[in-house]
Design a protein around this nucleic acid. Structure first.
Lengths: 292, 292
DNA sequence: CGATTAATTGACCGACTTCAAGACATGTGG
DNA sequence: CCACATGTCTTGAAGTCGGTCAATTAATCG
């Protein structure tokens, strides 16, 4: 199942797609070399289980390519995906060592593998690495908080919009001259559903609804044409107003924009109006205010 | 609003209720003294806002007494509480510095306050503190993951049971000779509702339903008599996680035993029947299997 | 190609939200 | 001590979103 690829030690990072994002992007070159030295490259196919929910992972990894999911099951056998790990992110070190959650490859993946304790030993010696690690933890926590918030008080429709908007930053997205772009959804419907706390049926219905109202176009189940990313993000409650997003945003930009929604005062004012409607309800037919 | 209490430096930890739990419990005495030296004690009343959602907190704190909540609002003004902080926990350092989330006192609180950077400087010098801090982060992440999972695929009823079971560990709980005990719910209904992603009405209805079936008894809105913690935990689905020892007594026991009422095996069997029912649905009227 | 899996679409219905009003406690001032 | 206000909690009735079940179509792969 697991193939080890013995690329030349030095060449590793040069060809790593994750080099520019996530943890590695934050490290100075000398340190990066030392980190690379301690690891080896591994790849495994889609749906491979990196570790089971009741087993402590014996290693740490930095994801090169592909996507991981972190599921937890209910007693009835239903599944909630607690996070999707994207290229450049680190897994297993400190954050993911609690039982109850497995780790599986959504797609075929390639990653840098550090044996047990290796990474921690490095971090103990290198303050720079430690700080980068802490920032990674914060990002993970941040994303998880967003998901919690979203599951708590957004509709599936809003969640899907938010998901798609973020996918434009974290998954293959090819901009077209007219401002739209093609998003390759690397994650199957079922996984999206289980991440967003809904069902595949609902996901299907919603994507088609978004198509009806002209937000997206479904070319095939895995490829959407996105017409208006900002509007998607807005419906998804990500960030009402983005200051100056230069093109080619990069992951960091999303994360930053994520929390910076609006001031407390503004929010309080709106709440005081007692208007219970969605800020940008979709014509399609979600609750919205409609009647009155 | 904020009262500073100038207790004698040395005496601080001796009288701190949080001394035995959370971060401080993990530190060696000498280090603890150094940590205490760097802080001062502050208290503030219920509903005081420690910081706003769009403001970076200028300090770090270890909670002595009382409870904090971490809310995030939707655009319509609805609120999701992303975490409840209990005595002994640390806030503001690294984990809570992202915008979008405020921090408010649920009850009157007392805490150890470290000025900006003070704590981080300490952690940079003290590996022990760093490790303890990391463990704290993991716990926070763990709880948040549980909440995410719960919001994703538990019913409000199950969530409430889980919440009550955990409250028996984190809030004043007085055991009675007959095996039951009195739980003082320090958190108002509205906060519980916003934590569990439901409404105060539903919380009210559910507590009364739990009373009807004899799981709890409502003495007054803030005090419940808990008859069977294990069963509560089970209904709440709290078993899969935390085989980790060294936890406070009680919750670890959930995994064993479970009495004659119903075992996991039985439940699994039911699930296998493709019965879509709740694992321990209550007579009150939740789904149940019924038809077939 | 047939066979298996993924995605779609439709019909049904029930748990929860919403809206609204009443009960209950607590506090304030006259 | 009562009247009144305020806030928390409770209870009822109605409406609906989204889950479940089921059946069809599309994609994928030996």
């Amino acid at each position: 199942m697991v193939t080890e690829c013995m690329a030349g030690r030095g060449a590793k990072c040069a060809v790593c797609p994750g080099r520019q994002s996530g943890l590695c992007a934050e490290l100075p070159k000398a340190l990066l070399a030392r980190v690379a030295e301690a690891s080896r490259i591994v790849e495994c196919p889609a749906n491979h289980r990196l570790w089971d929910e009741d087993v402590q992972p014996g290693f740490t990894a930095i994801l090169w390519r592909g996507y991981l999911r972190m599921p937890r099951y209910s007693l009835e056998g239903r599944r909630q995906i607690v996070s999707i790990i994207c290229p450049g992110e680190i897994v297993g070190e400190g954050v993911d060592t609690r039982p109850g959650y497995g780790m599986e490859a959504v797609t075929a993946v390639t990653f840098c593998r550090f044996e047990r304790g290796e990474f921690r030993r490095l971090a103990d010696r290198e303050p720079e690495l430690r700080r980068a690690l802490l920032r990674q933890h914060m990002k993970r926590l941040e994303v998880l908080r967003w998901l919690t918030w979203s599951l708590g008080l957004q509709t599936p429709e809003e969640r899907l919009c938010a998901f798609l908007a973020r996918a434009c930053e974290t998954m293959p997205y090819q901009p077209l001259p007219d401002g739209s772009g093609i998003l390759s959804l690397e994650v199957p419907r079922a996984d999206v559903a289980d991440l967003l706390g809904t069902t595949k049926e609902t996901i299907s219905r919603l994507t088609h609804r978004l198509q009806q109202i002209g937000l997206i176009e479904i070319r095939d189940p895995r490829h959407f044409r996105i017409f208006d990313r900002e509007r998607l993000a807005k419906v998804g409650g990500l960030s009402p107003a983005r200051p100056n997003s230069s093109e080619r945003p990069g992951i960091a930009a999303v994360r930053r924009g994520l929390g910076a929604s609006e001031g407390a005062a503004q929010r309080a004012a709106r709440a005081a109006l007692s208007g219970p409607s969605l800020p940008m309800s979709l014509p399609g037919g979600s609750a919205a205010v409609a009647s009155s």
